[in-house]
Write a protein that binds this DNA or RNA. Sequence first.
RNA 1: GGGCGAAUAGCUCAGUUGGUUAGAGCGCCUGCCUUACACGCAGGAAGUCGGGGGUUCGAGUCCCUCUUCGCCCACCA
Length: 918
Amino acid sequence: MSHPAEIPSQYEPSSVEEAAYARWLAQSLFTAHASRSNRAGGPRDPYVIVMPPPNVTAVLHMGHGLNNTVQDVIIRWRRMCGDEALWLPGTDHAGIATQNVVEKLLAKEGKTRHDVGRVEFIRRTEQFVADTGGVILQQLKAIGASADWTRTAYTLSPPLSRAVREAFVRLFERGLIYRGHRVIHWCPRCLTSLSDEEAEHHETEGKLYHIAYPLTQVNARDTPGARIVVATTRPETMLADVAVAVNPTDERYTDLVGRTVLLPLANVEIPIIADEYSDPTFGTGALKITPAHDANDFDVAQRHQLAMPVVIDESGVVHEVMDAAGRVPESIRGLDRQDARAKVVELLREGGFLVKSENHRLSIRRCYRCDTIVEPRLSEQWFVKMKPLAAPALKAVRDGTVRILPERWEAVYINWLEGIRDWNISRQLWWGHRIPVWYCDGCGRVSASRENLERCPACSGPVRQDEDVLDTWFSSGLWPLSTLGWPDETDDLRAFYPTDTLSTAPEILFFWVARMIMMGYAFRGEPPFRTVYLHGTVRDPNHLKMSKSLGNGIDPLDVVRSYGADALRYTVIAGMGLGADTILDPNDLERSFAPGRNFVTKLWNIGRFLLTNVGSEPVSSLDDIAPHRLTRADRWVLGRLNDAIRACDKALGPARPSAAAWNSEERYAGLRLNEYTESARSFAWSELADWYLESVKARLAVAGEDREVARAVLVHTFDQVLRLLQPIVPFVTDALWQRLPRHDGTALAVALWPADRVTAGDVREFDLVIEAVNAIRRLRADYAVAPGKTVSCTLVPSPAATRLFTEESGLAGRLARADVSIAAAPPAESAAHAVLSDGTQVVLSLAGAVDVERECARLKSELASLEKQLDALRGRLKNENFLARAKPDVVESERQKAGEWSSRRELLADKVRSLCGG
RNA sequence: GGGCGAAUAGCUCAGUUGGUUAGAGCGCCUGCCUUACACGCAGGAAGUCGGGGGUUCGAGUCCCUCUUCGCCCACCA
């Protein structure tokens, strides 16, 4: 009747996962079809997730593992719900990051990129990407990612590069891209400018130097030796000072405005000017103005039309770079900015100009790619005017067209967009999309063009293209559009844009998410997605972010090898509250991933038991079983299954807004993946396995009608459980699903999501049986009855439960190892007692093992705690305010409870009286 | 400097709009190799829900305040 040999006793993920994945691919389960989308005349709602493209040179780490598992769970859920589900994968060329890697390789040959030249450098980088790139996409397959690989995209591919150029030119034509000469963030190591977002703040302990600038004497009235003291954290930049600014309201300095000072070391005469920017409460109230090396000073200098000498070059070396002849003392020339600072301070001290230096906390900016301290630098860059682009993106989140989960990030997003500043998009790199702008030296025309230009459109003279490339995030910002074929009006674009959910880490909310929303509106008039799901960070037990450099990382593939992809997936999904960080211990993978491994094993064993007992003969559909043939246990498990399905649906939430914007009920609902997981787990484990499977064993052992009923219920229930769990643990569920006798050849990944049955079973009767079994088990444990020993138990059912317990005494006895008999009154002999919630009495005969004193103590303490709670409950029910203000259903359930408790209290009190003689 | 978040069992965390006796996993204790599972089963211990104040019939949940961590943003040199 069964085929136990077919089901291995041990589930070996490593031996089945790879083949299973290959089979899924061969069946094209993950390939979406534009024609099936209802936006293209097809029958289905589309559901689309664009994968945040990992850097093309990246290797999978836990952060990717987490984020892609999240996306995979969501897309697998929607796929089963009948949506035309598309998860679109791809990689990012990652300008600075990739260029850095290749430059390091060149450095090993003792060369720089300038030695090989631009063309050769790009060729080498392309080769490097071709050889080693995209590894991460292969690795994602190992964790079961159900992406549509036929659509794999790459930001630097020809079609996506075309989208980038189109976007640039359109913004240029709308006047939203302009060229500006200003102080920007510069990385002296990467030798490129950075956007505000790429220059990260770091709090540091530094020094504030007070430096005396002596006033030049113009007439005899001047006090000899008079000076003005400025405060600065960057003394080395003083060599490029062009003024000292004081606040016009600052009376200390009123007389000095208009005078000049002699800049120490540089020996240049500079004016004292009045400017609002100077804060009288900070330092000495006198501020040195260094326009070329400080963005604010630049603004001040512009207002006062001051010169802008440069003394720090692109590599951070101090010398007379521009308009600074004679300013840099011999002993400082050629020094790195750090060394120059020390030297300047030393010289100032020697010259008696250093008044004092004090400790000072300040925040410095570092390059997000290489951590080098960023240098403010005066240069010519391309900028995007952000205010007009930000407006619709702000509105979208404010009015709920786009929602951000968890909710609190919406405020952060709004706050940032409200204060948005123009975006520097030029990068002085070679790896990236070259800026599609051509300069004509003849007529001076600057042209942005979709096609490469040979001649000036105005004067037909020769032109040269801008040397710079675009910020990597410019192309990333177009990702939802460009991957779907924009700017062409492709089938994919029509069928799948806007997409649905974007899942990523909050760190790139500004870098990427906000810009995608802006670009979506700018080029398509629609948001690129409707939900932004921001997950937490993976950290180690010390709450440090996992990273390669800290050496506290976990390689997801190690976990897959040891415990399987499902264990990895289950662990990260089950352990992750919405937006909360995930803590994993790289030094104890065994313990970290135990939840997943244990659950997968349990599921496998549930399947093994169930399938071997059901056997391979045909099984009736549940619909063909007459309802009256279902046992209480059957009705119970079906009812519980239904509860589980509902709970999962509720946790996963609405897939899409019911109108143009999410309404207040939908807005922050759903995508509680941990709640969904917990609902499915607890049903499978604590209900199906612990109670139903145990209760059904006897029925399966006897051939006959009831066995067929039990088989039908088992197969139906397990089938539904596998469907519920497929998105989380696709491999083990697939392996079990294929062995189901009612299997019709459909793949689990595209099987229909379980439906909430209207006629779910009534669970209350079997709940009482469970209560009775638990009571007997607890009494056994209390009185240390040997585990193997069968005890005698008398049940005195409440009137309502008489029939129930008469019929189920055999089952209850089996589950509790007891000979259960039903009686109208409890036996007189000394025994262990318990009272169920409905008043049914449970009496265990223990032949002398029960000591009356102990039993009395037990019952009394139980009675006391019950009475205490009952008093509180009754107090509440007498309270007029409660009755008047609480919701009717709350009052009703409290009343019902009070009834139950008081009948139970009577019984316990009786027991205590008769047993303890009180 | 501004804003946000967290603080619940030994550890990691759940706890929707305030409403039964606050839950799970891991760990721990006591028994069990009960014919699916010891990665398991049965039973158990363990929480003044960070401190203080307030609102309410009722607070882990709402308000104020303090403490300790963490994050984001920021042009006071």
